[in-house]
Design a protein around this nucleic acid. Sequence first.
DNA 1: GTGAAAGCGCTAACAT
DNA 2: ATGTTAGCGCTTTCAC
Lengths: 343, 343
Amino acid sequence: MVTSKDVAALAGVSQSTVSYVMSGSRSISPETRARVEEAMRELGYHPNASARALAGRRTHVLGLVVHVTARTELAGVLPFIETITAAARERDYDVVLVTADEGRAGLERLARRGIVDAFLVMDVTRRDERVETLAALGLPTVLMGRPDDPRGLHWVDVDGGRAGELAVEELVAAGSETLVVIGEPIGAPSGEHRFIADFEVGAGRAAERADVAAEVVRPPEPGWPGVLAIRDRLVRGGGVRGGIVARTPRVAERVLHLLIEAGFDPARDIGLVAMCEDDVAQRLRVPVTNVSADSRQHARRAVDALFAQLRGGAEPADPQLVTPTLTRRATTSARRVRRPARG
Amino acid sequence: MVTSKDVAALAGVSQSTVSYVMSGSRSISPETRARVEEAMRELGYHPNASARALAGRRTHVLGLVVHVTARTELAGVLPFIETITAAARERDYDVVLVTADEGRAGLERLARRGIVDAFLVMDVTRRDERVETLAALGLPTVLMGRPDDPRGLHWVDVDGGRAGELAVEELVAAGSETLVVIGEPIGAPSGEHRFIADFEVGAGRAAERADVAAEVVRPPEPGWPGVLAIRDRLVRGGGVRGGIVARTPRVAERVLHLLIEAGFDPARDIGLVAMCEDDVAQRLRVPVTNVSADSRQHARRAVDALFAQLRGGAEPADPQLVTPTLTRRATTSARRVRRPARG
DNA sequence: GTGAAAGCGCTAACAT
DNA sequence: ATGTTAGCGCTTTCAC
């Protein structure tokens, strides 16, 4: 095994100089730096992680806690993982994926044995058991998702209230006078996520302000004939224009198919706004107006917050809510009649 | 931080005794052991992973390399991850999930920096680039999936040839005289996996032996009307009974729906055998006869092989192919007429 | 059956 | 701008 001692010998410097060249924590003359780096290259040197962690009290590994269940849509998680891994590598950190199977005990082991020195936790629910464990461990931690009681931990989440408002305001501006928000299917987690609750509240608030009727429904899985009834209600009575808010890409896709199948033109007869990633909204059979928060940006924010803590006690004072944006596409642009677009 | 020194002091023994109590690598009197364990409990001791790795030249971490792409069906990977993690923990090993995004360079870093001391690689293709990298690294490694040239690395894979034979033999026994094997959809990886290639060869071989016509098709995604044509061909001409082999659960589900929709009774009119997990086969609209290899068993085999290497040079002499089994369900049991069941 | 002591390969004061 | 040195918390010879 090639050690920093070998590098030092070949470069004709002391071992500590080699260390300082790597960490950059003290100034090195260009010539020395060059000689050391050359020696490293020549020997194919890789610093030993254990030794570094032991001496430096820092593992340079962060634990990314992903609650993988059979339900998990990997596609949605992937951009997060990629962004986080890349951002970590930029700071010379490795990422270990912690699957939830070991639960709280797993987090304890990882922390106490000094395998990781920070946690990034995805998909945190309102009363997530892990929050307490993590708070007790005292390692730098960022939660993705807002718990009711963060216990002093830093969290980052998309502003659900704003997302709901945006969706409803857009439909209203496009002429809808009665709205249905289609949420998570029955059986799926719903009340557990702060974002979802806030979304519904925000949607309701905006509907009230605009004086339009709004209702939240959860479709039964999987046959899901309920949407037909919803559609009928939305268009019945002639003259009353309906609008649909789809809380998830799945719902959006489904609604779109059903509307088209039933002979509607989603761009004209019924407004539709979906909460989903831009690329998904773009690729549906009809481009769907959508509300989204870029997940890469979201993830980067989380990592930045984490490294701020790692560098030394940045308090969770910085904005923790990510503001979503609305992108107008076909499903709300055709009927823009009664009110101004920025109503 | 509580160290083994603290434990030693409290238990009134030397630090090395504490170490030996943990490793079990030398005999300790019951009383001493009890005192030490009590002290550990009292102090809430957790051995420091870096120190242990540095002194012991073993990280007690294994890298589980999962090639996560947007296409990845997480549901299928999950039992593997769970089984592997559990089996590793039993041996006091932690698992870090290595996503493929960093590719070969990532594996190098993990190995050279001494972050992991073994690799378990999932979903290995016939000419997987990673195989060469891994062989060069020289760490204990088990590949899940059989490369054309394993470079001396241990691999574990399901016997695809046998799987194909089993499926065809069952259909023939159930009276099919012409067969269609429906493989991966166009666009999905197909020729890359040894298992799939062997499956088709095995199916062809069995068909030839039984003197029935067989053909392999790949459905186009996503509308997939092709199956209708297949169905028509299978039932046309009266009297010639058809059989379908579905290579994946998705295909099986699809075929089943289409057959039922078209007014066929899959248990009577057309034989169907799917390559998929038992629980999936069981839960389809009609229980489908299936060929499977239990993934937990498969995973456990891989882990066992890995720890055999870790303990010291077990050569890849043990059986590396996992034999699949067929479970007869509704879709082949109704028409068992012409030949004996074990034909 | 148990202890003492020498490292494992780094980092980070403290030197100069 | 660089070198010296004392650990980090464990494992593992030796010794008894």
